[in-house]
Nucleic acid binder design. Structure first.
Lengths: 112, 112
DNA sequence: ATATGTAGTATCCTAAAGGATACCATTAAA
DNA sequence: TTTAATGGTATCCTTTAGGATACTACATAT
């Protein structure tokens, strides 16, 4: 039987989460996928006109390897690759919506 | 009377929020302040043993100029400066808690 | 007289993130 | 036959965030 031990969180859970969603585009990508469901690579590119292909690819790969999104490749020509939230990614849904709402509120109350 | 117009969000609210809380330590700082209330500068330093004084100062200044935290200076010697969430910062409370909870869950379900 | 604690600044440097550009294979359409 | 569209990679470069280190003023404690 395990000896009971004090829970000394080895890594702060907030820090942990931030490390996964803390890229310049990650939360925005996740939010788009949350809203629209499945998206192809070039659809995402068009959503973010300023992102470079290389950066988008990398952010997607990182999100994928962290288990937040799924990448579905179809063996077609021209290529077709679909991105969507994984189950874990979907668990971010409430956070994504709250972040959006908070932003809307902040913008509304801070006229510039 | 205003003409009704399509809401073409000039800046994505998610992006907007991310720009404000998207530093390496910002969300963690906000979370600490949310949990503990008022914190002095060196108390925060001790919470994050790895942060440099310069970086902590900058993150705090940015949070302050974005209106998320308040900085209370006492005219004493040695100096005493207290940081706490502003009203706007407090409106992040639910998000901060959800982020923490999400992290706890993720860690629990992804044994490593 | 020296050390300690406060809340910083100033200067310089490194590492990481992201941007720019060119290139690839394959097919279908013009 | 050139062009376009797909979903990328490969190289190189720039910008930025953050780290390292030294320094400050002032008062109190030793």
């Amino acid at each position: 039987m395990d000896k009971q031990q004090t829970i000394e969180c080895p890594v702060c859970p907030v820090e942990y989460t931030v490390n996964m969603v803390g890229g310049k585009y990650k939360l925005v990508i996740l939010h788009k996928l949350a809203i629209h469901g499945v998206k192809r690579f070039n659809e995402l590119r068009r959503e973010f006109p300023n992102i470079t292909q290389r950066t988008l690819t990398r952010q997607l790969r990182e999100l994928e390897s962290d288990g937040l999104i799924s990448r579905q490749v179809y063996s077609e020509i021209p290529p077709k690759v679909e991105y969507s939230l994984s189950e874990t990614g979907k668990s971010l849904y409430p956070i994504l919506l709250q972040i959006e709402n908070w932003g809307l509120n902040y913008i509304a109350n801070n006229p510039k």
